[in-house]
């Protein structure tokens, strides 16, 4: 059983938040950090993720799209042979008309795997409320939560306050 503390501070301006994130990264505390904001901001995202890997969602969109495209060509061809309908003296397997079905299935499966992978990586749906979350974070303020061992809690609290955080609170988490 670890005895960790979750230290959460609230920032009113985005510049302060970005500054705090940068300082925390320099100190190597960023993997214990959660940054809350009510909208995605490019500067904030750059500050957090600079030099790190991009979201893996893209890979799943590609795989979903590819599956849709190949799958559609396969099932249209197979079904056209399985139940032969000779239309307009065209070959049974006429790719030009299957392209449309394949295109739609590419988009459909790409979109489905897009949203599924986003839900998976963002841990949605999530019925638990994180200890550091405050309702104000969805309104106008920004928040930084850090999970630290008990002995460091006081230190980190002071640190966050020095970056401009207000209402810094440390709570015990398991």
């Amino acid at each position: 059983m670890s005895t960790d503390y979750l230290v959460t501070g609230e920032f009113t301006s985005i510049e302060q938040t970005i500054g705090a994130v940068k300082s925390l990264r320099e100190e190597g505390l960023d993997d214990k950090m959660d940054v809350y904001s009510s909208f995605p901001d490019h500067h904030l995202e750059d500050a957090i993720y600079e030099g790190k890997k991009r979201s893996p969602v893209r890979m799943f969109v590609f795989l979903g799209g590819l599956t849709g495209c190949l799958g559609a060509f396969l099932f249209t061809s197979w079904m056209s042979v399985d139940y032969p309908l000779r239309v307009g003296a065209k070959p049974l397997i006429s790719f030009p008309s299957f392209v449309i079905i394949a295109f739609e299935c590419t988009i459909l499966l790409g979109a489905l795997s897009n949203i599924t992978s986003m839900f998976f990586f963002s841990r949605l749906p999530n019925i638990f409320r994180p200890a550091g979350y405050r309702p104000q974070f969805s309104a106008g303020t920004f928040g930084i939560s850090l999970r630290v061992p008990k002995d460091d809690a006081e230190d980190v609290t002071k640190k966050l306050e020095s970056y401009g955080a207000e209402e810094v609170e440390a709570v015990y988490v398991r």
Binding site: S37, S55, V57, S117, M118, S122, L124, N126
Partner: peptide, 16 residues
Amino acid sequence: LGWRGTHKQWRHYAAC
């Protein structure tokens, strides 16, 4: 769906 707006969520959300 229990959205909290953490940076990890926004990162995947923006890509999505």
